[in-house]
Design a protein around this nucleic acid. Sequence first.
DNA 1: TAGTGGTCTAGACCACTGG
DNA 2: CAGTGGTCTAGACCACTAA
Lengths: 253, 253
Amino acid sequence: MGTTQLETVPEPKYWHLKTVLTEALDSEFSVGEILPNERDLAARFGVARATLRQALEQLELEGRLQRRRGVGTTVAPPRMGVAVGSEQHTWPGAADDAWKPTDCTLAVAPATVADLLETDRDENVHTVRRSRVSHGQPVAAELIYIPESSVPDLSAIDAPSGPARARALLRELQHLELEGQEQSVELGSVSAEDARELDRLPGAPVLVVTTRFYADARTAAVSVATYRADTCRLTFGATGGVEIHHDPERRAS
Amino acid sequence: MGTTQLETVPEPKYWHLKTVLTEALDSEFSVGEILPNERDLAARFGVARATLRQALEQLELEGRLQRRRGVGTTVAPPRMGVAVGSEQHTWPGAADDAWKPTDCTLAVAPATVADLLETDRDENVHTVRRSRVSHGQPVAAELIYIPESSVPDLSAIDAPSGPARARALLRELQHLELEGQEQSVELGSVSAEDARELDRLPGAPVLVVTTRFYADARTAAVSVATYRADTCRLTFGATGGVEIHHDPERRAS
DNA sequence: TAGTGGTCTAGACCACTGG
DNA sequence: CAGTGGTCTAGACCACTAA
């Protein structure tokens, strides 16, 4: 009757808010700029703070915003491209400065990893912990699981743990001939443990990259790497070649 | 004084809830089973519904739960592995039954895509729309952008749009020699348009796979594929070989 | 200490699904 | 139609950061 608008589906407020904010970010804000605080923003748009937050959460998920408790909300830079797969497959730790081994232990792996390794679920495996920094920011935390059978010559190493032993373990891996690797990417949320290392709160979204390394006609190692989903764009293939460089939106005053 | 617990960091309720629910899912529920509704669950745990929902949201993000409005919350099956990159790079549409072309148009591409294609931002490009189904479920929606210069021999095709023309366009692509491709994966939220196709509400998390196809020493096409993050695990490399098959948790009564 | 984002509550109403 | 999840409100308090 009186309605000229069909409005088949009334758009949720937070969704409309997100659209408005996205346009504002593209046109009126530049990278690093701080937004008004949530209470002010909510008042300005005439919504409850929780509703405003729902919009901000989505924008953070999309890598447009960065929020830090006690500080504020800032406009995020475009996601950085991070190479995780290359044409010429290599073992972790091979002349690869992006990663820094931090520690290693000998313990039972999670059941899912044990299945990939085709080892018994209660069998001890070496676990190397590494972290990756890019552009001065921590971007990933990784655990590499290596069955004892993959590195038989470990007698010369004394230290039971620590970065030195971690490096030695990875060095041992290089002796095996890598026959292939297989990777998968899925969405996850960061564990309390990795959260500190990635400088995020527990539960933040991450991209989990699982890599299976083949050598000697079996699975010689498995790596589970956890990348910050807000700041990273994982790149595969054609490393060294031309880089995909996104430019999410060119306008910026 | 009276406190024996140090409790350096009081764990948020929703985080603890998530842990409890995860354990319950592993031990007391089987795939497909429906959970009690949110109001009952919240009451049972003595928290507000919003808090309970925060935990459920995370579990859905991790692919453990599936929620449908008007129906209920069910235990999700393990994520399915979906191949998105292969050793032998091929053009889209090559003897590849996983995708179904649905439509195509000739229009200007988004600025970010135009940059990848190295075309002018106001230049018209062919846009082919495809959707991918796996195990009876829609898993991805894709847009393939093809500059007119990549498919010069399109005179024989009559239809200005529709699946037939889409297939013809992809067929034309096969004539070019593919020199390489480059992919990236990042987190996004599903557009209102793709949401219908993927059977999710707008804003649901998705994995966005951007592929750049090289031929003739330039970028001959760009594809932007949107995969459901809740149900998919993207696999790269070694297709046809042994499959990584996750088994998130073996126990199930 | 003042100000920020993060958590939490106890309601309310809406949109959708199925019988 | 009853029951489900999705949206929204108007508060409150907490944890953290920086001045």
